[in-house]
Design a protein around this nucleic acid. Sequence first.
DNA 1: GATGAATGAGGCTTCATTCAT
DNA 2: GATGAATGAAGCCTCATTCAT
Lengths: 238, 238, 238, 238
Amino acid sequence: MPKTDGIDREAPPADAVRDESRNPTIKSQVSDAVLVQKRRAQIVAAAVKLFSVHGYYRTTIQDIAREAGVSIGLIYQYVKDKDDVLLLSLLDVLETYKREIPRALEGLTDPLVRFKAAVDAYCRVVDSRREAGVLNYRSTKSLPRERREIVKQAEIETNQLIAACIQACIEAGLFRACNVELVTYHCVMLAHSWALKYWRLKELCTLDGYIEEGLEFILASLLTPTGRQHAETLAGSR
Amino acid sequence: MPKTDGIDREAPPADAVRDESRNPTIKSQVSDAVLVQKRRAQIVAAAVKLFSVHGYYRTTIQDIAREAGVSIGLIYQYVKDKDDVLLLSLLDVLETYKREIPRALEGLTDPLVRFKAAVDAYCRVVDSRREAGVLNYRSTKSLPRERREIVKQAEIETNQLIAACIQACIEAGLFRACNVELVTYHCVMLAHSWALKYWRLKELCTLDGYIEEGLEFILASLLTPTGRQHAETLAGSR
Amino acid sequence: MPKTDGIDREAPPADAVRDESRNPTIKSQVSDAVLVQKRRAQIVAAAVKLFSVHGYYRTTIQDIAREAGVSIGLIYQYVKDKDDVLLLSLLDVLETYKREIPRALEGLTDPLVRFKAAVDAYCRVVDSRREAGVLNYRSTKSLPRERREIVKQAEIETNQLIAACIQACIEAGLFRACNVELVTYHCVMLAHSWALKYWRLKELCTLDGYIEEGLEFILASLLTPTGRQHAETLAGSR
Amino acid sequence: MPKTDGIDREAPPADAVRDESRNPTIKSQVSDAVLVQKRRAQIVAAAVKLFSVHGYYRTTIQDIAREAGVSIGLIYQYVKDKDDVLLLSLLDVLETYKREIPRALEGLTDPLVRFKAAVDAYCRVVDSRREAGVLNYRSTKSLPRERREIVKQAEIETNQLIAACIQACIEAGLFRACNVELVTYHCVMLAHSWALKYWRLKELCTLDGYIEEGLEFILASLLTPTGRQHAETLAGSR
DNA sequence: GATGAATGAGGCTTCATTCAT
DNA sequence: GATGAATGAAGCCTCATTCAT
């Protein structure tokens, strides 16, 4: 597990590894790597948008082609299946998480600050692509088992970003010893719930309020007396 | 049943209203109410099972008919649409929640005990129909808006069962003042998460451990000093 | 191998066995056996006609449906695949051979007469469904290996009808000892060639002439002196 | 009709005529004749191979391009159509026959020897390109009528090579008078059958045995008493 | 009330062909 | 001359729904 500030140094390699292990699974008939990148981005952008609104099954390849401004045939040069488009789409969303959380941590060193920033960032990325976030819950099961695993793996990797922050807090004596991955899930579900239950939550509080309240909830259980003091200091100096 | 101010007095009527407002939307060509009840149960049982495993779109009416041991034509005598079957199925799952939670509260009077029992029960019902629980997340959006509302309404009503317990604890001075419905969602998502992330959680802890840890998490934030004392007393007397 | 007059007594059972072993390979979603029989006959009749004229790949399921006067969907209730339709079609043609040759032998007892009648009948059935006969040569390879085997098996069984006649002639001392199955193929190809090369043969001779000349060709090589005498006696008494 | 040794003198012109009448129908966008020749050979070699194995319709232009080691676009510079590729492929096979049979006759003068050599050669070329030989039976009908005629014409020309030998035997008094072209077809089908029924024949005899037996079969019917004596003399002197 | 055969619109996917580079 | 990315018409097949028995 990374220490206080080693997190963002660890993440990129993990990212690279995932990418390496993922792209081979989806072969394109086109060899030009740059073009593949570009076209797939085009296709996925359209797909995520449509899948988010209408769901996987109600969205046709025709729809995606039209939205992306390309022909149906073109899609099939960059993708084997409609399933492929879904996989790419789901991964694209998870990718966003993995890109944005580290960005929010840049320059931050205090473990508690980093933890709060990470959860805050997670909630905000989810908010920024709310429908897309729900997509994972709706459609992952539409994938064949093997591909489902790829998605799960990507989720676990994103979770690591949070887990590392928690771990750092524990090691700094700010958090009590706890089941790190389980606590991570509490944080993850806090973020996801915002998207999953947005239809109701939006009537109960603002995103800011939601995050603040959620963090307090989590911290109440995790902070050690030392951690609590540290938190108050931070609050005071703000 | 909670005391305080009548929440439980609100629920049953709500139930009745929901039922009244629901069944009329799904008309059967068959008039004999008992038969309708029986046939629908048969159909829904098959549907929930298949939807849970294969998803809504991958399950055909033919599949459902075969699983239910009836003919295709029969299904269309008790249901207008494939959508109807989905709605009925989703409501059936929510129904279970609404049936089981009150059962777990029977005979309990202490507010804190009731709260814990409610959350515990919720987690356990969800666990008992894990796949079915996920179904709501996967397929609710496949429903036309109007019907989606019915499902949301049913969810809100289930939430009331938890909310009432929280409210009671607050009124008994055991919980701090809080946004009741928001906290309810924390509890609800605790239960739902068990199903949604079962693939990973099952490797991190047992259901018992999950519930216990989850409750502690929530209580850490909610209990007042009084509540904390009360909780310790309860633990001691156990 | 059947004796002089046992042939037609053996064929039917063989037929039955093949049928039993064939139908299970093609499952229908409809259970009513009579209806399946009727519908398949309808579909196959249309398919053979169209395949014969336009070939397998140029014929669409739509075409077949239209020709058969049924809907596309109906076809798929009696057949799994377009491949299935092809298999059924090919077998249907072979079936005709297996039905017509024994019919031509009914009541005939003299081995040489029977042999000539068998070859004659074969040539005439082929002529009666010329295009369909060619279909086997054009399209059998379009079938997956396993199904190709079924067709080959059916061909071998048809060949047995000829082979039995040859065998009987040998046993009666009319034909010299020879590689029965190989000679059978000469006879079979005589018949098939009429269809395969009809475009040219029809300008060289009539079917009657073709058969007569072909039989003479074959008999010239096979008849023993005894056989030759017997043949002349037959010719004289005619 | 050519005499004893005029055959190979006649063939080339016929060849040239056919070539003249064929190539114009298939226009290339490339003008350099040598290059056209080379590229087409490359394309056809790949096509024959793939068509033989997978059939015409299951083979894509992409497959052919890959097998030939050229681009898709290049193919369309040397060919108008996929149909064109098929025509070229079918003719290529027939070409082989027309090249190999005369080669087998080189230096032979005795009519009976020449006849046997011709049939023997035909059977052996067919054997050497068995799958390709079958291709003509499978795919000629996939061609539009006009082009089908070109293929038929090419077949008739190949037949002439055999017909000439038969004619020579008749004129030498070795064969009885007979319908030369019809008998030619018996010979042609003997050769073709080896490919068409190879799946079964290969289990009944060797190619050598097949040819020998086949020739005896044919000769039994054709040889005059003189011819028969001649044949025995040849056999004795061998 | 129950059945299940029949329908056909609509989706996914392939692949011959074109054309800009 | 050569390339291969792009196109989109067309085919196979599925499956919700109907209706005659």
